[in-house]
Design a protein around this nucleic acid. Sequence first.
DNA 1: CGATTTTTTGAATCATATCAACGTACGTGG
DNA 2: CCACGTACGTTGATATGATTCAAAAAATCG
Lengths: 189, 189
Amino acid sequence: MKGLIAHIKNYISIDDNEASQLLSYFKISSIVKKELLLKEGEVCRHNYFVEKGCLRMYFVNDKGTEQITQFAIENWWIADYMSFDRQTPSPFYIQAIENAEIISIDHLRQEELLKEMPKMERYFRLVLQRAYAAHQLRIKFLYDFSKEESYKHFISGFPGFAQRIPQYMLASYLGFTPEYLSEIRKKKG
Amino acid sequence: MKGLIAHIKNYISIDDNEASQLLSYFKISSIVKKELLLKEGEVCRHNYFVEKGCLRMYFVNDKGTEQITQFAIENWWIADYMSFDRQTPSPFYIQAIENAEIISIDHLRQEELLKEMPKMERYFRLVLQRAYAAHQLRIKFLYDFSKEESYKHFISGFPGFAQRIPQYMLASYLGFTPEYLSEIRKKKG
DNA sequence: CGATTTTTTGAATCATATCAACGTACGTGG
DNA sequence: CCACGTACGTTGATATGATTCAAAAAATCG
């Protein structure tokens, strides 16, 4: 829970009393590589915070290929917010790609928390604003960059992260085939 | 201001007193087609709500082509949130593509508003959560659909809207060329 | 080690871009 | 309210970045 509390303190100030109040709303769990937190067709009932490890969000397309839409590493929140918001079935999977420690809060408990501690509205607003801002930029990159540029940009933007995941997952996230990624890498060294 | 107040009331309850308090924080303005609210290199100082009309957000790529990343129509908020958050220069333009009525609030005033009326944190959180949710789905569509499917999906998802904008803008938003859009349309009658 | 998972190769193919030219529509000022 | 100019849309030929498929090579794991 250390990571989450520290993260919250980056955005709003809370005293020790409030911090311990918070704890009762969240559940911490260890999950193993490949474990699924959400499956296609299920409702996304929880909002997840990654204390440690790495998750991916993906869907399966018509051809049966897994398409990764996002990763979540330490200090990121992840959920299918459309499904979470409306409690409707999700088209996505969320899966651990490393053993991980996850803090979760379900939809109802989150509402209760926000009722009891309205200042947490500010925390979540700021987290979502930052996430939305990142997505706006991501859309720009998707339109602006060739596949090769996307790869280079990712590598330099998240140094070290590329080594944590198989290349075919990176290719999937960047929107091209593993074969083509292989070709890009060959070209450069 | 009617539209904004109604929009806020969809998310939180406010009494007449609070509603009139709100008014003093926002500024309403009429802008004409082609007018720019934000230019590349400027800081995005305002958060904009569209009461009437239509805006586009775009950037200019290396080749000098305008790439549209989003539209904003009635009842949508728009800003470059990275730039707005950190008050750093934006890579984007925001422009009216129809005469429009816009409600705006600058970064500082928004903070003052949130201090005076903390329940507005909830409003903005919910707005951002919905916007982020829409972006998550948009990323999925970008990966899932062929260009032709993107077009069909957009047309059926926003019936009537395609008629409000030139086709080359729709092509730009969907990530392909006007020539190719023309070809897609030919195929279908 | 052997078994599975991941990465690389190369050839054929496809979706989409590019460019240049022509056709159409539309709004603005005379 | 017409005519002109500019903005928008279409066409077809050619080019290209990226995919597909099948198979081999390499890395990782129990």
